[in-house]
Design a binder for these strands. Structure first.
Lengths: 221, 221
DNA sequence: TCTCTGCATACTGTATACAATATGCAAACA
DNA sequence: TGTTTGCATATTGTATACAGTATGCAGAGA
């Protein structure tokens, strides 16, 4: 007999709610002005408030949402200083992964990263959202290959916040391709095995992203 | 008229439960064998299951607890590989803070850090717990002064996991003072302003901590 | 007209009831 | 005796009822 084990991977409704909220934020259906009300969301999804509440509180803890009027939630609104800090934290996480990879990588790792970069850089859509996704996928690949679950968690936390804060819209007016073309060099420097050079290269790359972001913010305002 | 504003800083019972659980873990009243049951905890604290549940799920999300038999929770049990990864993530966060501090610090920052290190290194109790606390306070001070809220959050997450996993007991048999005496040098290298040297110094320091930890684990088993 | 007070309303947080699921044990069967 | 089945129990996840708190508006008083 051969039966596949049945894995109800989503036991908790709260996880489903969480996923739906994240998706809605990504699709920009939830804007900075919207107030997220437990009862309303529960009614829309046709479930009780309890799981909705759990998902909202989780997003609050992750810094994606913040308490709004009457105790309901809204998107946390990031200022320029926080954007800077977020980039600094990216540098911390991704820089360390780069160091790890420089010292500790196989030929397969390099090949995998090259193919990943190639695939993602060939993004067809020319929207900020598509750019964001491709960029995230590439950077996440480095962290995945580095093989440290804590750093991967931090990566997701950081990018989750970026996703939430409408950091996309503001860069519509920047040449999206400019930054997306540099990733192959990152693989090259990892292959060199020089951990300090690799770290610096990654940090510079992230700094470039930050500069582009700021440029976008300036011209956008 | 002068009235102090009344700030019910803990609106949610869940926060109180969370704090109590963390404290209990720190006091080692909750061991790796204990199973945390919502109903039982609720009864002990004389509140309903709802806030207990929220606190437990938060600790689960943070990686402090994991699902145990019958869906209840127990302390997440870390293996040696994960301990290594945790140290790597510490290096990421604290190394980046060190870089930031090297480039960007005032005389007051340096003076504050020196006084903090001096004060904490003078820890009187000779227990693993006291050592852990002092060490954490010192390292947290660096991150605080670096002034990046995301890195501070990550720091707390990392040290929260360390706290939970009984990483103290295993180092009882190591000379606790050995590592605690090195912190003033960290301030010195920050003062030098060399960001690469500072990063390397911090990473080496954390690596030393890891080596001590491993030594403790080996001799303990 | 402007300010203040009080009430209606909109929410949340907490308790509790209910349904579903996993686990272990005991009894039935080979 | 060993294996399987079914039931009792433990424990969760979800829904819902209730109570408390914040907010805005309407009406009274200056």
């Amino acid at each position: 007999m051969k039966f596949r084990s049945i894995q109800p991977q989503r036991k908790r409704l709260a996880d489903e709610v969480y996923a739906q909220l994240v998706a809605a934020i990504m699709r920009r259906e939830i804007g900075p002005e919207d107030r997220l009300v437990q009862e309303k969301l529960a009614a829309d999804m046709q479930i009780s408030r309890t799981p909705v509440r759990e998902a909202l509180m989780r997003l609050e803890q992750e810094g994606v949402l913040e308490v709004s009027t009457r105790g309901s939630f809204k998107l946390y609104n990031m200022d320029a200083q926080e954007v800077r800090e977020l980039y600094q934290s990216r540098a911390a996480v991704e820089g360390q992964c780069a160091r790890i990879l420089a010292v500790n990588h196989t030929e397969e790792d390099i090949a995998y990263l090259r193919s990943k970069v190639k695939k993602e850089e060939a993004v067809s859509e020319n929207t900020a959202r598509a750019y964001f996704e491709a960029n995230r996928n590439i950077h996440r690949a480095f962290v995945e290959v580095a093989g440290n679950r804590f750093l991967l968690d931090m990566f997701d936390m950081i990018w989750g916040k970026a996703m939430a804060f409408c950091l996309f819209a503001e860069i519509e007016n920047v040449d999206l391709k400019k930054s997306l073309g540099d990733h192959m060099q990152l693989v090259d420097v990892i292959e060199s095995g020089d951990k300090t050079a690799t770290l610096e290269k990654f940090i510079d790359h992230i700094q470039d992203g930050f500069d582009l972001q700021m440029e976008g913010l300036d011209s956008g305002s």
